[in-house]
């Protein structure tokens, strides 16, 4: 079939990203895993652009229910996603740097969610 391969790759990429987020302890690597996820999204969007017409007109019996697909919308969306990703990486690196400056580490295990409660328990 026409659009299976991009989707499968996208799924794999996304899964890889998720795996990275879950398994990696290094903040930078986690950031990169997130990038993978975003790129998977991009892949889907671009692939969808190519297959959307057939998806809708070929399979959909009551196609009238859907307006004409928006031209190249996916690709445009992908452009925005790239921008978002770039911004996130920029901000993210700044944050990680700041964290590194304070703690001399970028290991996420040390980031607690409950710092103060322990002190109070006394």
């Amino acid at each position: 079939m026409h659009a299976v391969i991009p989707y499968v790759i996208a799924a794999l990429l996304f899964a890889l990203g998720v795996y990275g987020v879950l398994r990696r302890r290094n903040a930078i690597l986690v950031l990169m895993a997130v990038e993978l996820m975003l790129n998977a999204v991009n892949l889907i969007l671009v692939a969808a652009d190519a297959s959307i017409k057939s998806t809708l007109s070929g399979v959909q019996p009551e196609a009238w229910a859907y307006p004409a697909p928006e031209p190249k919308a996916g690709a445009i969306f992908a452009l925005f996603v790239i921008v978002i990703a770039a911004a996130e990486v920029g901000v993210g690196l700044a944050i990680v740097l700041q964290y590194y400056r304070l703690r001399r580490a970028v290991v996420l295990d040390e980031v607690p969610l409950h710092e103060h409660e322990e002190q109070e328990a006394r």
Partner: peptide, 14 residues
């Protein structure tokens, strides 16, 4: 249950 470090929280969230 919420007194867990970030990675565990991330796993739980996902």
């Amino acid at each position: 249950a919420h007194r867990v470090p970030l990675p565990t929280a991330a796993v739980a969230v996902l």
